[in-house]
Design a protein around this nucleic acid. Structure first.
Lengths: 334, 334
DNA sequence: TTGAAAGCGTTACCAC
DNA sequence: GTGGTAACGCTTTCAA
C-alpha cells in the first residue's frame, strides 16, 4: 500500500505539502497540486482512514442505531439515511438493538462507547431512561428519527394527528362505530402505537362517539392483524363500520380478513391506514402518507448541521402525514 | 477522555504493561493486572478504536455490501449478520449498492477502497465483472451470500433445486399445466430469478411437460405479481392449474389475485412459493423454506475462519431449501 | 514480569 | 507556498 510518503517522494515534495494538496486544506500552488495529484493517481494512493481519524479526531462515519432492520418503517428510514450519507462520503456503522435482548444491552454498554462515529442517528429507538442516559453520555451529536421526545434533536412525526385525521375522515363520511386495529398485541407496546391510539381516542371523544371506542389488539404485522381482525369481525352485530389501523400493513391484514369473511370494503367496512406502504395502492387503501426515506435524509442533514456547529441547540423537525384518499373508505352501509 | 497513559499512571505501571494487562496479550502478574483493571474501571477507560486500528492494522469491523436493505431476503440476512457480529464484538459498516445507480459506482470506487473493515460480506450482490474485479482488488477476505459464483467463498442456495422440487411437488399431485410466476418483470433481471426459472423449466422438461411451460413475468414484489397474475389468470381456458412462484411474496400476490378472480386455492389452482416468508403461514402457502438469517450467520462464521487463517482456500457452503407442505397445493380440479 | 522506545500513517503547527 | 517535526493513542519489539 502506497502511503502519503510515497506520493510525496514521487511528486518531489514533502509529506505536509502532499497532504495539503490532496486534502485541499491549506495553500498549495496549482502546479504543485497537479504534480501531487498525478503522483497519487499513479500510485493508486488511498489515505488510511484510521490514520486520518487518529490525526484529525474524527472518523468520517455516522452510527445508526435501530431496534429492527427488517421492518418496513425502519428499513426505509435506513435506506434514506444510507443514501444521504453516501452522497456526503460518510460511512455508516450499523447497530441493531432489539428491545429486551442481551445484544441490545451490549450495544449500549460496549459498542456505542467505542465511538466509532462522529455522530449518531437513532431510528425509532424509544430508549429506556438508562439507555437514553448512555446515549447522551457518549457526548457526540445525536439525532433521533421519532422514538425520543425532547432534549435532543429529533425528526418527529405527529402521530396523534395522523390517526386523529384518519378517524375524522371516517367520521366525516358518516361513520360512528369505528374501531382501532393494532397495538398492544405483544409484550412490548411501542410509544408510536400508543400515541396513534390516543389520536383515535381523542377524535372519537371530540365527536361525541366515546361510547363507540373500541380497540382490537394486534401485534404490528400483517399476519397478526389478520388473525385479530378475523376474530373481531366475525360477529355481525358487534362489527364496526370503520377501522382505523395503526399502520398500512395492519390495515391490509384487516382488509384481507374482511374479504375472507365476505365483508365488502368499503361497502360494509371502511378501512384507513397509516404509512402509504408499498401495498397501499394494490388494496386501494386510504391512508396517511409518511415518507420514512425522507425522514432518514432529514436526520442526516440535521446531524450534519450539528457536526458543523456544535453549539447548535437541539431542534425538532415536525413532519406531517398527509391524507391520501383511495377507495377503501366510503360512507357506512344504509 | 482517559487514555491508556492515565490508566497506567493511576495503576503505577508503564503504558506497555497496562496495554498487556487490558488486552490479555503477553504476560502480566495477576496482581498487576488487577491494579490495572481497577484503574481502567475507575477512569472509565475505553480504548480509542482508531488508535488500536492504526497500531494493530485491523479495524474490528466487517463491511457489508448489499443491493437492497428494504427487501425481505436482504434485510433478513443483514439481521443474521448483525447478530452474529455483535456476539463477536465486531462492528458492521454498511454499504448500500442499488444496481445501476451512481451511488453504487461510488461505493465500489471510493468507499470500498477506504478499507474500513477487515473482511467483507456481500449479500446477493451479483456484481458485474468490473465490480467483482474491484471487490477482489481490495485484497481482504470476502464471503458472499449467494450472488457470486466460484472463485470466492460463498453461502450458496441451490436455486434450481428449490424450484425443481416445487415443480415436482405439483407434478406429483397430478398437475400438468403449471406456470412460473415472477422474474423478468423489470429492467434488471437478477440471476437468482433466472436460475429459479431454469429449475422449473428443467423439471417440466424432465416430466415431458415442455409443452405446458409458461412464464408469467412480474417484478419481484407483491403488488407487481398481483397485477401480473390478475392479467394472466383472467382467461379460464388458458389458466394453469398450478403456479410455481419465484418467491413467497410473489406467490401471495398470485393467491390474492386468484381470490379476487374467484379462483379457489387450492381447489382450482395450486400455488407453491419459495422462502417461508412471514406471510406464508397466513396464506397456508406450501413453500420451500430457506432461512436467510442463518445464511447471514454462516457468512460471518466463514469470514471469521478466513480472517483466522488467511491461507484458507475459498469455500462454498450449500444450503438446501426444504419443502414445507401447507394447504395451497392439492390435486388439480377434476 | 516489566519498562523504554519505536512505530502505525496521517495531519497540523511553526518556522522558513 | 513549502518543509520539518511533533502529535494522535495505542501496540509491540527489545532489553533489562
Amino acid at each position: 500500500m502506497a502511503g502519503i510518503a510515497d506520493v510525496a517522494a514521487l511528486a518531489g515534495v514533502s509529506k505536509s505539502t502532499a497532504s495539503r494538496a490532496l486534502s485541499g486544506r491549506g495553500h498549495v500552488s496549482a502546479t504543485t497540486r497537479a504534480k501531487v495529484v498525478v503522483a497519487a493517481e499513479t500510485l493508486g494512493y488511498v489515505p488510511s482512514t484510521t490514520a486520518v481519524s487518529l490525526a484529525t479526531g474524527h472518523t468520517n462515519s455516522i452510527g445508526v442505531i435501530m431496534p429492527y432492520v427488517t421492518r418496513w418503517f425502519f428499513a426505509e428510514v435506513l435506506e434514506g439515511v444510507q443514501q444521504r450519507l453516501l452522497e456526503e462520503g460518510l460511512d455508516l456503522t450499523l447497530y441493531d438493538a432489539k428491545p429486551g435482548t442481551a445484544a441490545r444491552a451490549r450495544v449500549f454498554d460496549d459498542f456505542l462507547a467505542r465511538k466509532r462515529f462522529d455522530g449518531l442517528i437513532a431510528i425509532g429507538l424509544e430508549p429506556e431512561d438508562r439507555e437514553l442516559e448512555r446515549l447522551l453520555a457518549i457526548g457526540c451529536p445525536l439525532v433521533s428519527v421519532v422514538g425520543i421526545a425532547g432534549s435532543v434533536s429529533v425528526i418527529a412525526v405527529d402521530d396523534d394527528y395522523a390517526t386523529r385525521r384518519a378517524t375524522e375522515h371516517l367520521i366525516g363520511l358518516g361513520h360512528e362505530s369505528i374501531a382501532f386495529l393494532g397495538g398492544g398485541g405483544g409484550e412490548h407496546w411501542p410509544q408510536v402505537e400508543r400515541r396513534r391510539l390516543e389520536g383515535y381516542t381523542a377524535a372519537m371523544e371530540d365527536a361525541g362517539l366515546a361510547a363507540h371506542i373500541s380497540h382490537i389488539r394486534a401485534a404490528a404485522s400483517l399476519p397478526a392483524s389478520y388473525n385479530a381482525a378475523v376474530d373481531a369481525l366475525g360477529d355481525v352485530r358487534s362489527r364496526p363500520t370503520g377501522i382505523v389501523a395503526v399502520s398500512d400493513e395492519v390495515a391490509v391484514g384487516g382488509i384481507i380478513a374482511a374479504r375472507r369473511l365476505g365483508i365488502r370494503v368499503p361497502g360494509d367496512l371502511s378501512v384507513v391506514g397509516i404509512d402509504d406502504h408499498e401495498y397501499a395502492e394494490m388494496f386501494s387503501l386510504t391512508t396517511l402518507r409518511q415518507v420514512p426515506r425522507e425522514q432518514g435524509a432529514a436526520a442526516v442533514d440535521l446531524l450534519l448541521a450539528h457536526l458543523a456547529d456544535p453549539e447548535k441547540p437541539p431542534q425538532t423537525i415536525h413532519m406531517k402525514a398527509r391524507l391520501i384518499v383511495r377507495s377503501s373508505t366510503a360512507a357506512p352501509p344504509e
